[in-house]
Design a protein around this nucleic acid. Sequence first.
DNA 1: CGTCCCGTTTGATCTGGATCAACCGGTCGC
DNA 2: GCGACCGGTTGATCCAGATCAAACGGGACG
Lengths: 255, 255
Amino acid sequence: MTGRCSGLSSAERAEAMIRTIAPTPNRALSGRCSACAVRSLSICGALDQADLIEFERIARQVHLTHNEAIFTAGQAATSVHNVTAGVARLYKLLPDGRRQVIGFALPGDFLGAMPSDRYSFSADAIEAVSVCRLSAESFAQFIEHRPHFLRRINEFAARELMLAQEQMLLLGRRTAEEKVAAFLVGWRARLANIGDQQHTIALPMSRQDIADYLGLTIETVSRTLTRFEREKMLVIVSGGVRLLDAKRAEAMAGV
Amino acid sequence: MTGRCSGLSSAERAEAMIRTIAPTPNRALSGRCSACAVRSLSICGALDQADLIEFERIARQVHLTHNEAIFTAGQAATSVHNVTAGVARLYKLLPDGRRQVIGFALPGDFLGAMPSDRYSFSADAIEAVSVCRLSAESFAQFIEHRPHFLRRINEFAARELMLAQEQMLLLGRRTAEEKVAAFLVGWRARLANIGDQQHTIALPMSRQDIADYLGLTIETVSRTLTRFEREKMLVIVSGGVRLLDAKRAEAMAGV
DNA sequence: CGTCCCGTTTGATCTGGATCAACCGGTCGC
DNA sequence: GCGACCGGTTGATCCAGATCAAACGGGACG
């Protein structure tokens, strides 16, 4: 069933409010795109040397720490962002505080598919995060005469959409056990994709974040993980989880 | 209990009955794009006269009836589609048969954001449907040197993604009552958007389709609708629903 | 005109996951 | 070194929505 107040506590909400109001301090140095570690993973992988120099001119590196907002739902969408380091949490809130995490953004992920002129969701840093920030205007201008770049952005949007559809299936039709297993397997795949191929799956987000991503409560996530551990499918370690029986997890996830 | 004899005269019921969503059903003989009723709503709205003639050359009108498949998940994604009449159901299945409807496609909607070379979901006709079918290759070629068209497709993808995120919030964090109310309000808005602005909301899809869209069972959808009727929020009519208290529905939907 | 069929409604009961409530263990500030 | 705090775990109970079961009603067809 769907929980009533499974989002933030009122204290957390107040904190989030303050965060939102406070302008994000800008500790940016100008970025050197040609040296960017995640360029090939990001939309910038479609840019040649000349493009990069121009891109660098309009981009600005911004660094954020734990729980700092990158942008907030409802605000004017004046910037687009490229995550270059760390993990961001993307989410939507209901007026009464219920929260749905709609995704986690990893290095290389692009946050800028804006159909409206306001952000339709919020994004903040789960851990230390760096983003490449561009004004929406200069970004639009930059795209203007670079159709290959637009095509790349389009591919990213299509991939994002496919992930969203997969997540709808998960939220609407999978059991708690399947949700948690699918999350672990999917998260591991995404980490592997950016080169982090450890046998221990890093989980920088809190249990609450996972719960809000899977449409569950924190207690159910915790119980399910401990059960998985009891059943020798994994070991819970500090900052993550170590998969012992990946086959079983994948079977549960219904891959 | 006499079921749904809810105080409507037979005249009213007849008036409310079966209205195809198509603005102009079956107007197309060969694909005459320049005469297409939904062009301005669709991605083709970005095409000029010359583009249209070329588009027409590669497009083929296909007509489908109730429950016929437009394409199926897992198949090679050889075509892209533009719905021109009727309503299609987009869905994903789990191996054990659980189904998640990920959306309903209306005239003007584009089905072609393919990140992979296989369809990641299935689409079939809920009622009589016409689609504009193009081979993925010729479509890709067509886009090639038409950046304005690509930009239009991108806008459509971004809108689609935003809807998907809204749906994740619904699936993960809303109650059954909120889900049904949100569905009615959202569906009404989409119908209004394509020009069908009747006070009776046409519901060409089955209760099962609605249930699978909202992550509920058919019984819960049915019960919730009857309750809404009992509470005078709406009247259930053949082929749809008549909203009596739109304000209340919108409040429930959390708009 | 009857009856078969199928989508829908309604009723009774069950249960997965939510809610409520401790409690645990690490860390931070003093 | 100690208490407060915070994220996480565990236990007891509850309940929204699922499941099981039956009946209804309208359309199709002989």
